[in-house]
């Protein structure tokens, strides 16, 4: 069962090509306001995480997610 750090590591890998140039990724990076992800890119991020961990991520978690930390926390809850 993957834990918080496994999710965090994978999110960083996936986010790298998405994030605006010059922005340094960290747990507190905000996906939309800071990294500039569009709603379509957020969906793509979610899909890539689903495929990597072969898990189901319902859209319902999205309103609670602002930062990379929020996302990793929600994913850990889902897989637990």
């Amino acid at each position: 069962m993957p834990d918080y750090n496994d999710f965090l590591e994978r999110i960083f890998v996936i986010l790298k090509p998405f994030a605006k140039k010059g922005v340094i990724l960290n747990e507190n990076s905000e996906l939309v306001t800071e990294l500039g992800l569009t709603s379509l890119q957020v969906m793509e991020l979610i899909e890539q995480i689903e495929d990597h961990f072969d898990m189901s991520i319902p859209l319902n978690i999205l309103p609670d997610i602002r930062t990379v930390h929020d996302l990793a926390t929600q994913l850990e809850k889902l897989s637990g």
Binding site: M43, E50, D54, M55, S56, I57, P58, L59, N60
Partner: peptide, 22 residues
Amino acid sequence: GADVVRFKHNDVADLEKRLRRL
């Protein structure tokens, strides 16, 4: 309030993958 999962538009393989995961 149900858990909502999307599959790629008209992509049956993607639908199947998502049902299998459930």
